[in-house]
Nucleic acid binder design. Structure first.
Length: 490
RNA sequence: GAGGGUAUAGCUCAGCUGGUAGAGCAGCGGCCUUUUAAGCCGUUGGCCGAGGGUUCGAAUCCCUCUACCCUCACCA
């Protein structure tokens, strides 16, 4: 870094502003490389970061990286002049520069810009990790890869400069979200915003973050879900509302969990969960079509076919399929025995719902590779879902599974205010028993239901996991720009 | 929270059963006007994650701490 500061000084002496105000680019690297014949012989201006320099005395080749890709430039002393060449010799890898010149093809056939003028746009003072690549036939061999995960997450800007495939993952993420938004807008749903800071948190089973408002002198919670506010909007008379936003859950972190994560929630009046299943498979497959170009995606070496219709199985049927045990309507003791038979450890304090859920996640979930809707969950697990029309022990709920992971959650929403109050009371008992994640009673939400909420279908989709699926990334940290990290020690 | 792993130059890594720190790339100085992991010659660079201990002597052995990764637990 000391050397680079000296170069800065030298540049100043030469009358070069190392941090000028703008540069007029005429082309992106990729435009030129896509149609070389159209550009050869033409003047272009490009700008970007210097990623490699191969000097040869009075001439040099270099590679310039812009937001779309990289292109080679060729700098000759007799072309740009002595003064400009002296400035060029003060450039380092990592500098941001602008180049104007004519496009040509080198002896080895690489489309290249012959610089007529080259200027510094921003001086780099901190050396970049140097990554070298070599084309061997079809394979690209990468040398000195910048691979330290900790550094990559903490200094994502460096990761993005140096690892083009990381940049691509986040472009895909953005496309997935905009495709989803386009789909939902196209169906006439209204995108809305509801409070992040909530006096009572609700809509999911999770521990919240607590914060404090000084003027009101009260604690507020960062939302763990949007659900209860969005349903209030359905009470208010909108037919369909959705929100794409961050939720916050104060829980452990691993490759599927980040304390803040992105969620899409959708509520549609006068529909039920059967209708919502059709929407989910249509929406996800249309996103695939737009983003990937087809209904098939590959992940972890496996091919996933998203073409509707997806398989549908009921919760208890699929458990029986994988365990040979019918758990429907079983009492606590029977369930404990079943869990024991299946080698699943059960905490003595667990109740029916928890044990069944554990058996499901252990024995069934990992097997749900191709898209599958699991439907009709036991009532204890779902305090906000409507009772099944044919069976009061169940609720009308489904979860879509892909690659052994759940990517969403949906119900026919409970709109009976008396039933909802009873469910809250049952949750209250769980809280008293020490369950820190049970739902908290929300009196204002109940009041809204008492005014009358139409029959409603609701859906939540975990955006981060959907992106992991589409981009074949193994960890949620690879699809979030700045994943939560412990502070760096100084 | 438990177990395992990793931490050495700007980057990627080597360093044996303890003997006083190494390579490639980058950097710096030369040579070089079609190279592409450019090449050739020369050269700088290190609190070996932090702290403590054992030892004549520690990057190496022991303990503590910190961060990250993996697995499990908790958890959508």
């Amino acid at each position: 870094m000391r050397v680079r500061r000296q170069k800065l000084q030298r540049l100043n002496e030469l009358g070069v502003n190392p941090y000028p105000y703008n540069f007029k680019r005429t082309e992106y690297s990729t435009n030129i490389l896509a149609e070389p014949n159209k550009y050869i012989g033409k003047e272009v201006s490009v700008s970007g970061r210097l990623m490699a320099i191969r000097g040869m005395g009075k001439a040099a080749f270099a590679h310039l990286l812009d937001s779309k890709g990289r292109i080679q430039i060729y700098v000759r002393k007799d072309q740009i002049g002595d003064e400009n060449f002296e400035v060029f010799n003060l450039f380092d890898i990592g500098d941001i520069i602008g180049v104007s010149g004519e496009v040509f093809e080198t002896r080895t056939g690489e489309t290249t810009i012959k610089a007529a003028k080259i200027e510094l746009l921003s001086k780099n003072l901190r050396p970049l990790p140097i990554v070298k690549e070599k084309q061997e036939g079809d394979k690209k061999v990468v040398y000195h890869q910048f691979a330290d995960k900790e550094l990559r997450y903490r200094q994502r800007y460096v990761d993005l400069i140096v690892n083009p495939e990381v940049r691509a993952v986040f472009v895909t993420r953005s496309r997935i979200i905009s495709s989803m938004r386009r789909y939902l807008d196209g169906r006439g749903f209204l995108e809305v915003e509801t409070p992040v800071l909530q006096p009572i948190y609700g809509g999911a089973s999770a521990r919240p973050f607590v914060t404090h408002h000084n003027t009101l002198d009260m604690d507020l919670y960062l939302r763990i879900a949007d659900e209860l506010y969005l349903k209030r909007l359905i009470v208010g008379g909108y037919d369909g509302v959705y929100e794409i936003s961050k939720d916050f859950r104060n829980e452990g972190m691993d490759r599927f969990h980040n304390p803040e994560f992105s969620m899409m929630e959708l509520y549609v009046a006068f529909e039920d969960y059967h209708w919502m299943m059709l929407l989910v498979e249509e929406m996800i497959s249309s996103i695939a079509q737009e983003v990937v170009g087809e209904m098939k995606i590959s992940n972890q070496g496996r091919e996933i076919d998203l073409t509707p219709p997806w398989k549908r199985v009921t919760f208890f049927d699929i458990i029986e399929e994988y365990t040979d045990k019918n758990l429907y309507g079983k009492e606590l003791e029977d369930l404990k025995k079943a869990a024991k038979d299946l080698n699943i450890d059960v905490d003595p304090s667990w109740r029916q719902g928890k044990i069944i859920n554990e058996i499901f996640s252990e024995k069934v979930e990992p097997n749900l590779i191709q898209p599958t809707f699991v439907t009709d969950y036991p009532i204890e697990l779902s305090p906000l879902a409507k009772k099944h029309r044919d069976d009061p022990k169940l609720v009308e709920r489904f979860e879509p599974f892909i690659l052994g992971g759940e990517i969403g959650n949906a119900y026919s929403e409970l709109n009976d205010p008396l039933d909802q109050r009873e469910r809250f009371m049952a949750q209250k008992k769980l809280i008293e028993l020490g369950d820190e994640e049970a739902h908290v009673l929300d009196e204002d939400f109940l009041r809204s239901l008492e005014y009358g909420m139409p029959p409603t279908a609701g859906l939540g989709i975990g955006i981060d996991r959907l992106v992991m699926l589409f981009t074949d990334q193994p960890s949620i940290r690879d699809v979030i720009f700045f994943p939560q990290m412990r502070p760096e020690d100084k």
